[in-house]
Amino acid sequence: MNDAFFSLLFSSYSLFMIIRVTTPILFASMACLIAKKAGVRNITIEGTMLISALIGVIVSAKCQNVWIGVLLGMVSGVAIALFLGYFHLFLDTDIWMSGIGINRIAEGGTIFLMFVLTGDKGSTAALASLSVPDVDIPVIKDIPLLGDILSGHSLFTYLAIICVIAIYILLYKTPLGLRIRAVGEYSMAVESVGKKSSHIKLVALAISGLCSSLGGMFMSMSYASRFAKNMMAGRGFIGIAAESMGSGTPFGAAISAFIFGVFDALANIMQSFSFPTELVLMIPYLATLVGLVVYSSVRKLKEKKRIRNANKKIAKEAK
């Protein structure tokens, strides 16, 4: 029994699955990152993912065209982010309240809309929604072990990896990225050269919404082929946690997201063996919590050490 478990755990199948389940968390972490860099704590990622997931499904079903569905899903993601931006930046609403409010609107709104269109509150199975195709990468798919792991993923998965690289390039190589980083760290510096920090934040939020929408649509148009209520199951929040442990960089966040993907896949695998389901399902969240604690305490200790050293230096010079 145990042999079977471990051989499955380290097989190319599970590695494939890890990459697969990491996809939404990766998008979510990028969404969190870009907004945070601009100084906005965007916690509506979960809700945005939900809404985009539903919109993508509905539109693809109605138009019988998966790409239009994806496009409108992306538009909806950006729209929600701008909605958040309007309330937070222009109506001076507390970012946590705005976030909670929008997430709740998403939770209830998606079920409501689903019910209106399909008469079902559980899922959109009744709709003939389309899925985004998996991609078999030409040369790679034939490589013995690597091919099974790297090829054949959903288009979204490859997009997620490209997203990480794109966010990196955006933040560190383009003017917009420089301004976003400046505005998030010290908006006065930007204001003193005459640009409005709220405009820059809005752009960052729009990008954030875009990433969230892709993560959401992955779930309903690739991972599964329908929308189900509350189908994000906290992945948006896990993405936020992953970002907070990524030292504020895209690749750091990606690695954290990957680690959580490992736990998520682990949970999946353990379920097919007779580990108690509930404890297994708990693992990703517990891991996030522990990770958060470890990360924060390490950071705090480093900070204390730095101050102690600075103090020692000065006390020495004073003698």
């Binding site: 929040f237 936020i240 919590l289």
Partner: peptide, 11 residues
């Protein structure tokens, strides 16, 4: 530890 209260309580 200056951990994020929202995320911690949510998890």
């Amino acid at each position: 530890f200056d951990a994020d209260l929202f995320v911690a309580s949510l998890m």
